[in-house]
């Protein structure tokens, strides 16, 4: 299977381990990724807080570049915020031809044209729908048996576009986790908000949401995420929040492909557990 790949800015820097582990994992299940040439930022939540048109133009530029490559018509996106922004354009231009016209007026500045041929897919969508679960089972040989794992989805891969999972009670990670031999941690925080950029601009509110999630995860061996923003928020302030709440809330937080990669025989170095801000290596220590 072949997909075009949109890593997004976070995967180039603060979430490099998400990029690396995604590539390592997909390679082992025969999925080929080709970067969209010259891709640029999707606008994150910043663009839509500043300008309506810009929040469409920034993702649209990447869709237009992808169309120009004449390769796959599917774009795989690991970051949930990027996914939402690219998806937003895919959906909007199907109905709103006036908007498509405006977008193309702007893109003409770079001699680009958007037609609307691309299908935007989240990494979790591809892993849960396109990858043969039996293959993961076979390769992992129950390697993660004994672990209880909490799947954390966050918001923007589930809502507002309900493409591959239930936006209220998400389950798309369940089978993937069980395929490794691990048990599922039962909780209802999987689709709750991590605070997003409020952790930077309104820390009090942002940290309260992170605290709720970490508290609910008590008893799990690790939390898995599918978004760089969620990952950063859940990992970066565990000590501070533990101190504030007066209980130990430290827990390994891994990106889903890091966990699946480890289950399928990749080393901690292959999936770069050393780059995680939480003590992700602790999870595997028991196994050595």
């Amino acid at each position: 299977m072949k997909y075009l790949y949109y890593p997004g800015c976070s995967l180039e820097g603060t979430s490099a381990e998400y990029d690396i582990s995604t590539k390592v994992l997909l390679e082992s299940v025969d999925i080929q990724l080709t970067d969209i040439e010259d891709w640029s930022c999707c606008g994150a939540t910043a663009a839509e807080s500043q300008s309506h048109l810009l929040s469409y133009v920034l993702p649209a530029r990447n869709l237009a570049l992808a169309e120009k490559m004449n390769s796959s018509n599917q774009i795989l996106v690991p970051c949930s915020a990027c996914y939402l922004n690219l998806k937003k354009v895919e959906e909007a231009i199907k109905k709103d031809k006036d908007l498509l016209g405006k977008i193309n007026t702007v893109l003409a500045e770079e001699d680009l044209v958007l037609k609307g041929d691309m299908i935007v897919r989240h990494l979790l969508d591809v892993l849960s729908k396109d990858v043969d679960i039996e293959e993961i089972k076979e390769i992992s040989h129950n390697k993660m048996a004994g672990f209880t794992i909490a799947p954390y989805y966050g918001c923007q891969c589930l809502r507002p576009f309900t493409v591959f999972d239930d936006p209220e009670e998400p389950h798309s990670m369940d089978e993937l986790i069980r395929a490794t031999g691990a048990e599922l941690f039962e909780w209802d925080m999987g689709g709750q908000c991590c605070g997003a950029s409020n952790t930077s601009t309104k820390p009090e509110a942002g940290m309260a949401l992170v605290g709720k999630i970490l508290k609910a995860a008590k008893g799990a061996d690790a939390i898995l995420t599918v978004c760089p923003m969620c990952q950063m928020n859940l990992e970066s302030s565990q000590k501070k929040i533990s101190h504030k709440e007066g209980i130990d809330l430290e827990i390994p937080v891994l990106f889903l492909p890091q966990f699946l990669g480890l289950a399928m025989g990749k080393t901690q170095n292959d999936v770069r557990l050393d780059l995680n801000l939480s003590n992700a290596g602790k999870l595997m220590k028991a196994r050595v």
Partner: peptide, 25 residues
């Protein structure tokens, strides 16, 4: 924080998260 729960659940189908971002703009 753009979690889209209100948009998802609004019985009138209003895009409330988008309305929030228009106020931010």
């Amino acid at each position: 924080s753009s979690c889209y729960y209100c948009t998802l659940r609004c019985p009138r189908g209003l895009e409330l998260t988008h309305a929030m971002s228009l106020l931010k703009q």
